[in-house]
């Protein structure tokens, strides 16, 4: 129980920082929007191609924005040696991980809602199979946030940290990109039966990522 309460504390701290600083709102969210527009430029919107590949473009945009969210989440801890404060606060490292990952997940869900609206409007997509969409998004977001948080702490405080995180995270979340895109395609194509196995895959991936995060956060938070 204390684990959950402590996680909620850490998550609240991170979300409060984002609400006050507005970096997520004023930088990461617009960045995702710009990526959506960029894809439209890259893939001639006239040929109906955009609506067909919309799920993949959506998740690619989310992935890119997630990298910024992860980098941001640990930049916050580097300033004023906040990391030491966090370590000395007596909060369980597992709770620190869960809290930080949950905060990133919440940010990503907000981002996904906004980008989803953007996709519907800009890419001419008709939302269908909402339950499948929501479940896939939730499971994928959990996996993204957990993996991102693990690699975030793994490279925090190192030089070239900002360029290292994308290189480490992107190949590792291959299953998320694949699973979430296929599930979204199945939902939008009106064949949700094809999508649910991918949601299962996403759930398994997320569970593994969360377990790994809880296990490694303790030693990684020490010293340094």
């Amino acid at each position: 129980m204390t684990l959950l309460r402590e996680s909620a504390l850490v998550m609240g701290k991170d979300l409060r920082i984002e609400l006050r600083s507005r970096v997520a709102l004023q930088q990461i969210l617009p960045f995702g929007g710009v990526v959506l527009v960029l894809f439209a430029f890259a893939l001639d919107p006239d040929r109906g191609l955009l609506s067909r590949v919309a799920p993949g473009l959506f998740w690619a945009a989310v992935l890119l924005a997630a990298l910024l969210a992860v980098t941001r989440s640990f930049a916050v801890e580097d300033a004023n040696r906040a990391r030491d404060g966090l370590r000395l606060s007596g909060i369980d490292p597992g709770a620190v991980f869960l809290g930080k990952a949950a905060a990133i997940a919440v940010e990503l869900l907000v981002l996904e809602a906004a980008l989803g609206a953007g996709v519907v409007v800009l890419y001419d997509v008709e939302p269908r199979g909402v339950l499948l969409l929501a479940c896939a998004a939730l499971a994928a977001t959990a996996g993204l946030a957990a993996t991102g948080t693990v690699y975030g702490v793994l490279s925090s405080g190192l030089r070239a940290r900002d360029t290292l995180v994308p290189l480490l995270v992107l190949p590792a979340v291959t299953p998320v990109m694949l699973g979430a895109t296929r599930a979204f395609e199945a939902a939008l194509d009106g064949v949700p039966g094809d999508g649910w196995p991918w949601v299962q895959l996403l759930v398994v991936f997320s569970a593994l990522a969360v377990a790994a995060g809880v296990a490694v956060f303790g030693p990684l938070l020490e010293e340094s």
Partner: peptide, 24 residues
């Protein structure tokens, strides 16, 4: 410490990647 953990995560990730790609 960091690299050992990163190596193990990468190693554990490979089967999951392989599985999802096979499925795809």
């Amino acid at each position: 410490k960091r690299c050992a953990i990163a190596a193990l995560i990468a190693f554990a990730d490979v089967p999951v990647v392989h599985f999802s790609v096979t499925w795809w």
